[in-house]
Nucleic acid binder design. Sequence first.
DNA 1: ATCTTTTATCGTAATATTGCAATATATTAA
DNA 2: TTAATATATTGCAATATTACGATAAAAGAT
Lengths: 110, 110
Amino acid sequence: MGITKTAIFTDQDNSLAAIAKALAHPARIAILKHLIKQDSCICGDLVLEIGLAQSTISQHLSVLKQTGLIKGNISGTSVCYCIDTEAWQQANQTFAGLFAAGIPTSNDCC
Amino acid sequence: MGITKTAIFTDQDNSLAAIAKALAHPARIAILKHLIKQDSCICGDLVLEIGLAQSTISQHLSVLKQTGLIKGNISGTSVCYCIDTEAWQQANQTFAGLFAAGIPTSNDCC
DNA sequence: ATCTTTTATCGTAATATTGCAATATATTAA
DNA sequence: TTAATATATTGCAATATTACGATAAAAGAT
């Protein structure tokens, strides 16, 4: 159906999947890395930096903003984006929790 | 177009996005957690554990296997799946690297 | 007020994902 | 061999995603 049955999963699992989904595109990874690198925020330089159309970059930014990983301030005609530190650290914790729990003693299957 | 322009991104970004994509569904998160919890491997119990059709679970397992996060051994009529420890630790490192680099000094945008 | 710049949104097309039923395949049990 | 069990694959249908061009909206410059 192309639609995920969110109701049958835990909130935690849905939430983790949602964050992963936001990270599940190289353009969004590139955007986040660029925001991290610059520390101070950039705006439409991303369009030049990454080779995608302006509308496409805008869409990716929208996805990241909706997930809460980034936030944007209007400054003049341009918009200044940056990592939302709190959400970022929370995402870090969430993934760390998943991975930390998941290192079994042996690597043998049955 | 529905198709990602992988060519314009770095291998690292594509790889990170690919792992994130594998984690970007609650069913797959639930499967991984179950595999972690059981340590010893399970097979079609997942169909009962998670409320999805057998064919759907099989597809999700296929996605996880293709990404390399899990592996499966045939044991009788059933197949025994488990986390691929090495790939799992590598994925852990990859995400940790992204998040660790990304905690800026201030949370102010511009 | 008009023009320019920057970003967001809309419309559209191509492709991907999710999910299930039905079927195929493979192995064990009888 | 035949039946039963477990998993994979195939064939749909519904929805989501990716991408772009065109257009709208908002703020600053002339």
